[in-house]
């Protein structure tokens, strides 16, 4: 890691750690709110913060476009969504910039942040990101689009159609598969029969690589290079970041019906957030003092956001008919 570290300053490494921690603690709070009956649903980022935050750090905020999928708490926070906004969507309140409380939690979209709106049918966002890249190319903008999905979703037709289109037209799009080993209850061996999801890149004639999704520097390096290629007109990249889904699929799932506690505990040993913290501490970049400062700052932010979102009003019934068509 020390060699790779040279591409990132200590400040950047600490910022990455901060956002990973922010995503984790936000997610943990949402589970508490769910289990205490405050919010009906949670779909989690836990175990994927490293790949989400690190990939987003390789993008240009306010320039590049993102099409995040439903677990991407780390992506949306890094790209500029505030904690308050995140909790407003969890509570489905009117002020939520993602959908004004219309969509379930985890369905992100924020135009001011160049973040495309997403839906529940998986992988539909891949052609959208490709279309965004087509527009960027047509308008000769020095920007890329970045889209994420799960490994199960890489079986959808839209994955294939999108990547093939992007390749044929050399479009500046980065497709990152967040391989967390599970499509709800089905393990990777029930989803694909190739060694790596990134092997599929060969069929599209594009760059493909698999990185350790628990290693933020590796993910950052891969996405940064993909961005450079995209800006140089070298077309799309398929990056597979391998991690593990530490929580059940959602707050409505019981993962112990299809996997063991031992397996989850073993994965926790490799948790990117924990390992990154240990590495930064070992290198003297992260001190105990800094860490406790982050923790208390994050706790204050989440407390404030929770209270605000809890007390914020729902959308008025009269707004049900708004936004069907342009008005």
């Amino acid at each position: 890691m020390s060699e790779k570290n040279q591409i990132l300053t200590d400040r950047q490494l600490l910022d990455m750690f901060y956002y990973m921690l922010l995503a984790r603690r936000s997610d943990e709070r949402m589970w508490l709110l769910n289990r205490s009956g405050k919010i009906p649903f949670v779909v989690s980022c836990q175990g994927q913060e490293a790949m989400q935050v690190a990939s987003s750090f390789a993008l240009a905020k306010g320039v590049d476009y993102t099409a995040p999928y439903y677990r991407d708490v780390g992506v949306v926070l890094t790209m500029g969504m505030t904690v308050k906004e995140l909790f407003l969507q969890a509570f489905a309140k009117a002020e939520d910039p993602n959908s004004g409380g219309r969509q379930m939690p985890g369905h992100f979209g924020h135009r001011k942040l160049n973040m495309l709106s997403g839906s529940s049918p998986v992988t539909t966002q891949v052609p959208h990101a490709v279309g965004m890249a087509l527009a960027l190319k047509m308008k000769q903008q020095p920007a890329v689009s970045f889209v994420t999905l799960g490994e199960g979703s890489s079986n959808q037709g839209d994955f294939h159609e999108g990547l093939n289109f992007a390749s044929v037209h050399d479009l500046p799009v980065i497709v990152m598969v967040e391989n967390n080993q599970y499509a709800i209850s089905c393990g990777i061996e029930q989803q694909v029969n190739c060694a790596k999801i990134s092997d599929r890149a060969l069929g599209y004639g594009i760059h493909g690589e698999t990185v350790d999704g628990n290693d933020p520097v590796a993910v950052y390096t891969a996405v940064k290079a993909a961005r450079e290629r995209a800006l140089n007109g070298e077309g799309p990249s398929l990056i597979e970041a391998v991690g593990y889904r530490l929580t059940p699929h959602s707050s409505d799932d019981n993962d112990l019906t299809y996997r063991t506690k031992e397996e989850v505990n073993a994965a926790k040993e490799k948790d990117g957030l924990i390992i990154f913290r240990q590495q930064l501490k070992k290198q003297g970049i992260l001190t105990d003092e800094l860490e406790s400062g982050y923790e208390s700052k994050i706790k204050a932010l989440i407390d404030e956001a929770t209270t605000y979102a809890d007390e914020a009003p729902y959308a008025d019934e009269q707004t049900l008919f708004d936004g069907v068509y342009h008005q």
């Binding site: 476009y65 047509m138 294939h160 999108g162």
Partner: peptide
């Protein structure tokens, strides 16, 4: 375009969002 209707529409949607 490549022969793939979901991409024709889906890519169009993405471009229209720009």
């Amino acid at each position: 375009t490549p022969l793939a209707e979901s991409a024709i529409v889906g890519v169009g949607i993405g471009a229209s969002m720009y």
